[in-house]
Simulated scan of single mutants.
Amino acid sequence: MSTMTYRPAHGGHYGLRQAARMEWIKLRSLRSTAYALLLTVVGMVTMGVVTMANTKPPHGAAKVASFDPTNNVLAGVALGQLIVGVLGVLVVTGEYSTGTIRSTLAAIPDRRMALAAKAAVFGALALVLGEAVTFVTFLAGRRALAADVPHPSLGDPDVLRAILLSGAYLALVGLMGIGVGAITRHTASAIGALVGITFVLPALLSGTTGTVVAKFFPTMIAGNSLAVTVPVDGMLSPWAGFVVLCGYSAALLAVGGRLLVRRDA
């Protein structure tokens, strides 16, 4: 991982722009970043195409009313969130495990600014990736549908919104990963916490309490609020779910930033 030190800007101060530039250089210099992003694209598109290829036409008034092929094609978001979330964790913990965090903090002593730069750079990259891959997945999956299955279109009600929010979801999970990584500063524990929050706890709670509590967890919001064009009973509305996810990301980053200030490198 490469690092670079900046001379202070005018007035003896460095800024977020310099910090973000440093983070971008580090992020793009890692082969693991390219491999992880490529795996996200391939995995999500493949899952979307396979899911749509196996989607059968609905029969009966109830099934026709609840039929939501857009939600089916975005099933790969579950895989994408895992990869992007883990990569977000590594953006922080990778530097602690290798010791390069010392170089980062020597260049940018303001730890909150350093974390903000990481979040801004990785969040922007994850957002661009998320929006691109969800659109590609939708278009590729639509072509895989059988001729007798209703084909969704970008012009249909809520389809574009579902795609855009699903893409943004990947960026939000990436920011959550950065926040959890900043809180724990340990790769294994941070990944375990992220997987527990996104996969394990929602599954356990949905089996014991239904959707009363589980509907507030990220994976449940993604699959049953953001990515749907037909409302799911008992779940949050798409925009309410999006606000909750934004709150999670902001809270984790805020806690992570506060803890970084209190700790030694």
Rank of each mutant, 00 (worst) to 15 (best):
124 A>K: 10
8 P>W: 14
79 L>K: 13
221 I>L: 14
243 V>W: 01
5 T>Y: 05
5 T>S: 14
205 L>W: 11
141 G>Q: 02
155 G>S: 10
245 L>R: 07
35 Y>K: 02
97 S>R: 11
246 C>K: 09
157 P>M: 10
211 T>K: 06
194 L>S: 09
261 V>H: 06
134 T>N: 11
70 T>K: 07
28 R>H: 03
249 S>K: 10
202 P>Q: 03
31 R>I: 10
212 V>A: 15
236 L>C: 02
21 R>W: 13
37 L>I: 09
128 V>A: 13
209 T>K: 12
132 A>V: 12
183 I>T: 06
79 L>Q: 11
101 I>A: 07
191 I>N: 00
135 F>Y: 12
126 A>P: 09
123 G>T: 13
185 R>S: 06
24 W>V: 13
204 L>E: 14
134 T>F: 11
257 G>K: 04
75 A>G: 14
236 L>K: 04
112 R>A: 08
255 V>T: 12
236 L>M: 05
157 P>Q: 11
156 D>I: 06
225 S>C: 04
57 P>C: 08
158 D>I: 09
262 R>M: 09
95 E>H: 02
63 K>G: 05
95 E>V: 02
113 M>Q: 15
80 G>A: 04
224 N>D: 08
61 A>Y: 07
198 T>K: 00
109 P>M: 03
118 K>P: 00
110 D>L: 12
34 A>W: 13
184 T>K: 10
151 H>N: 08
109 P>G: 08
201 L>D: 06
